[in-house]
Design a binder for these strands. Structure first.
Lengths: 339, 339
DNA sequence: GTGAAAGCGCTAACAT
DNA sequence: ATGTTAGCGCTTTCAC
């Protein structure tokens, strides 16, 4: 079992080294005006006692914490994972460490009302700044800088990083239409999210622009999960006049389509073109065409921007839009409708 | 931009509400002996001022923080992601929130020497207990409970959750041997990890037990990443006498094999049986046979055990071994060696 | 170059 | 039912 000794404090170190706490603190924080022999002595005492500075206490007193916070309702879903990957990369390249705060579950976090709470929780005590993912609030009160990723509000009062969801959906559809598809299914994401609605709007507008009337039967309402997508895909593919292509609102959704197609013996991309927004997970190996990955990139960019704010630089623009782009992993066969 | 007001403290609330700080503190912590009208008044002041409690200050004073920590060198690799998923699930079911601490990068974390630092960092200040992933240290000094996942040491002095890596590898190999394979390739994981070595040992022992001499040319050294695995797979598959099956030491490694096979026009599972340890990512849709997922489960179990320790229950055993098991997603064709 | 002392915002006795 | 007060471990003036 682990040792149950009382925590070693700066006091203990000072006492054993025969100096005052302030001297120890100076050494700890790399201040210059300390005799090198005292410094050495203190360092060795620190090693001996296994002292480590108490984060809470330090945070309470000092400005710079070298810590950025990331607030997410949960850290298990693919979107969250991808954001974290991007944040992680930026963190790895920086002098900052990262503290991810989560309640594990959207329900526990509650909604907008709780967001401010989590922001202050981290920002006013532990961290130099926070990144908040998909916030609903239109405003935050905080001492330290904040950057949001994919906020629900279109033009929030705080810096944000978005994806060009509408444009991306438009390009995706143009690609499918360009292959000759006339009946294109759509599986939507969570309807309360801006991102989802803008992808849907892209779908509709692209069809309209192409002079193809929207068939509401071809629009299935998913929720960005593979499970629901399976049901949606079954629904779409068992229509009397099934779609010859499916535009999945995210990668998990595309996975569901792939899964159902496999069960039904429908080959992708030969019999059915599938295009997935995002491209998280390993679907790139699976015969899907994707709008390339930017979620991770959003995490990366958001972190970089936050760090800029922390070190006092200003942002070129408060809103940053990540450009989505079509990536063809496996070209779909040119499709000509038999009808 | 966000408001730049000075942080609202419990003092401010007390003053505006015309009560003492302790009364506010009582309300904040849901103590009973407060008149309901004062309580209401305080609550409304809290709302007005947008007060939120300072985590650092609170942590410094109180025992119970309702927060567990998770320490990982980085949070971007698939193993880390899977662990977090499991932890997330357990957290969602509990009254605790989660704080994930990472430096973003193994290099920045340094090694064993730094582990203790991170443990104390969280455990002696912010959290009620921590989970540490793949620690090298054989001992930790900490006030609050600790649980490790997949420690490098075989029998550490702290509670741990392992997978039955050796047994799992044995079963995987028995499965492949049972299909009639005589030349089975192996792509190893990071050699400094216990898990990797035990999987390799399972590979060797299974062959030996089957009376098949180990051909060292069939053992490629990977590092649990898809990138390296691609090289390994190319190496193996371009041998004069290539393997008819490959045992990949984890799922990412299996992905690499799949990728190379696709490029070479080798069909899985028809021409090449591939079995991957783990089963993270979406490889289950890819014609691979896998040792089923337990990494996430390790995170889940570890969290549950930590919570037990936090609330004062004791563990049945200090070491918990997750049972691995073969899962056949797509049965490989019975293979008979032509040699 | 070093020490003494004043808090940071909070909780937990101890009073009243 | 509420107020007073003593710290938690640390950094930071301000002395010496």
């Amino acid at each position: 079992m682990q040792k149950k000794k009382r925590t070693v404090t700066i006091q203990d170190v000072a006492k054993t080294a025969g100096v005052s706490v302030s001297t120890v603190s100076r050494v700890l924080n790399g201040k210059v005006d300390v005799a090198s022999d005292t410094k050495d002595r203190i360092h060795s005492v620190i090693d001996d006692l296994g002292y480590t500075t108490n984060l809470a206490a330090r945070s309470m007193r000092s400005q710079k914490k070298n810590l950025v916070g990331l607030i997410m309702p949960e850290i298990a879903n693919p979107f969250a994972v991808e954001v974290m990957k991007g944040v992680n990369r930026a963190i790895a390249e920086s002098e900052f460490d990262l503290l991810v705060y989560t309640t594990g579950n959207v329900r526990k976090s509650g909604q907008a009302s709780h967001e401010q709470k989590y922001v202050s929780l981290l920002n006013n005590s532990l961290t130099d700044g926070v990144i908040i993912v998909a916030p609903m609030a239109s405003e935050f009160s905080t001492d330290a800088p904040i950057v949001s990723i994919d906020p629900h509000i279109n033009t929030p009062n705080y810096p944000s990083v978005h994806a060009t969801n509408y444009q991306g959906a438009l390009s995706a559809m143009e690609y499918l239409l360009g292959l000759g598809h006339k009946r294109i299914g759509f599986i939507s994401g969570r309807p309360e999210l801006e991102s989802s609605n803008r992808r849907l709007k892209g779908y509709r507008d692209a069809l309209e622009k192409a002079g193809i009337p929207v068939d509401e039967k071809l629009i299935a309402s998913g929720d960005y999960t593979t499970e629901t997508s399976v049901t949606c895909a079954q629904e779409l593919l068992s229509l009397d006049n099934p779609p010859t292509a499916i535009f999945a609102s995210n990668d998990q959704t595309a996975m569901g389509v792939f899964h159902v197609a496999e069960e039904l013996g429908i080959r992708i991309p030969e019999d059915l073109s599938v295009i997935g927004f995002d491209n998280i997970s390993e679907s790139k190996y699976m015969g899907l065409t994707t709008v390339d990955q930017f979620i991770s990139e959003m995490g990366y960019v958001a972190t970089q921007r936050l760090i800029k704010l922390i070190i006092g630089e200003s942002l070129d623009a408060q809103t940053y839009r990540m450009q989505t782009q079509i990536v063809i992993r496996n070209s779909c066969k040119k499709y000509v409708d038999v009808a």
